[in-house]
C-alpha cells in the first residue's frame, strides 16, 4: 500500500491486495471467487427453495421470485422491445441478480471477520476483473443480438442516420464496456472504501448513514448495469426505418 501519498495507518484497509490462487499457469483472485461462489450459492438456494413447489396461488418465497421475475421482465421488455426480450431476459436478469446480491452481500455481510492470508473478502463487483468480465459479456451480447437478428444489416446501425456517425459509433463500442465496468467497479469499491475509512476513523454511529447510502448505491448500480445492458441489446436489435 505504498501508493497513498501519506503514511496514516491506512494500510489496514488492504486496498489492492489479493489472495492469489495458482491454477497451472493461471493466477486468479481467490477472494473474488470465494465471495462469488457464496453469492451464486445464495442465489441458487433462493431459486431452488422458491421454485420447489410452485402453485397458481403463490405462497412464501414464490412471491419474491415472481416479483423479481416480473421486475426483470418489465426491465427487459421496456429496454429491448416486445419482439426479442424473451431471449435476453435470463441474461439481463442474471446480471441484475448477480450484481445486486454481490453488492448487497459486500455491504451487509461482515466479511472482515474472516481473516485471509492476503487481501480480504468483499463484494465480487469491487474487483475490476469481475466488472470487466460482465461488461465484455454485455458487449458480446449486443453484437450477437444485432448480428443474429439482422445479419449483416446490423452494421447499418453504424451509419445511421448519417455516415458521419461512423467514428462515433465505433468509439462507442469501446466506451460502452469501459463505462459499464468502471461505473460499477468505482461505485462499489468507493463505497467499501468510504465505509472502511469511516469505520477506521470513527467506529461508532457515523458510518451507519454512509452504509445506508451504500446499500442505496449498490441497488442503483445493479439496476443501472442491467438497464444499460438491456438498452444496448435493444439498440442493436432495433429496426431502423
Amino acid at each position: 500500500m505504498g501508493f497513498l501519498p501519506f503514511t496514516l495507518p491506512f494500510a489496514e484497509l488492504e486496498v489492492g491486495q489479493h489472495l492469489y490462487w495458482q491454477i497451472g499457469d493461471l493466477r486468479i483472485h481467490g477472494q473474488v471467487f470465494m465471495t462469488s461462489w457464496i453469492v451464486i450459492g445464495a442465489l441458487l438456494a433462493l431459486v431452488v427453495i422458491g421454485t420447489k413447489k410452485m402453485e397458481r396461488d403463490p405462497r412464501g418465497v414464490q412471491n419474491l421470485l415472481e416479483f423479481l421475475w416480473d421486475y426483470i421482465r418489465d426491465l427487459a421488455r421496456t429496454q429491448i422491445g416486445e419482439k426479442v426480450y424473451r431471449d435476453w431476459m435470463p441474461f439481463i436478469g442474471t446480471l441484475f441478480l448477480f450484481i445486486f446480491v454481490s453488492n448487497w452481500g459486500g455491504a451487509l455481510v461482515p466479511w472482515r471477520l474472516i481473516r485471509l492470508p492476503s487481501g480480504e473478502l468483499g463484494a465480487p463487483t469491487a474487483d475490476i476483473n469481475t466488472t470487466v468480465a460482465l461488461a465484455l459479456l454485455v458487449s458480446l451480447s449486443y453484437f450477437y443480438a444485432g448480428l443474429s437478428n439482422k445479419g449483416l444489416r446490423y452494421f447499418e446501425y453504424y451509419v445511421h442516420p448519417t455516415p458521419i456517425m461512423l467514428p462515433f459509433k465505433i468509439v462507442e463500442d469501446f466506451t460502452k464496456p469501459l463505462s459499464l465496468s468502471f461505473r460499477l467497479f468505482g461505485n462499489i469499491l468507493a463505497d467499501e472504501l468510504v465505509v472502511a475509512v469511516l469505520v477506521f476513523l470513527v467506529p461508532l454511529v457515523l458510518p451507519v448513514p454512509v452504509m445506508f447510502l451504500g446499500l442505496f448505491t449498490s441497488a442503483i448500480q445493479a439496476l443501472i448495469f442491467a438497464t444499460l445492458a438491456a438498452y444496448y441489446i435493444g439498440e442493436a436489435v432495433e429496426e431502423h426505418h
Binding site: 489492492g16 489479493h18 491454477i23 493461471l26 493466477r27 486468479i28 483472485h29 473474488v32 471467487f33 462469488s36 451464486i40 442474471t94 446480471l95 448477480f98 465480487p124 474487483d127 475490476i128 476483473n129 469481475t130 470487466v132 468480465a133 460482465l134 465484455l136 459479456l137
Partner: peptide, 13 residues
C-alpha cells in the same frame, strides 16, 4: 490487476 479471474468470472456468469 487483470489476470485469469476475468475470463473465469465471465465463464462463471
Amino acid at each position: 490487476d487483470f489476470d485469469a479471474t476475468l475470463p473465469l468470472m465471465a465463464v462463471q456468469v
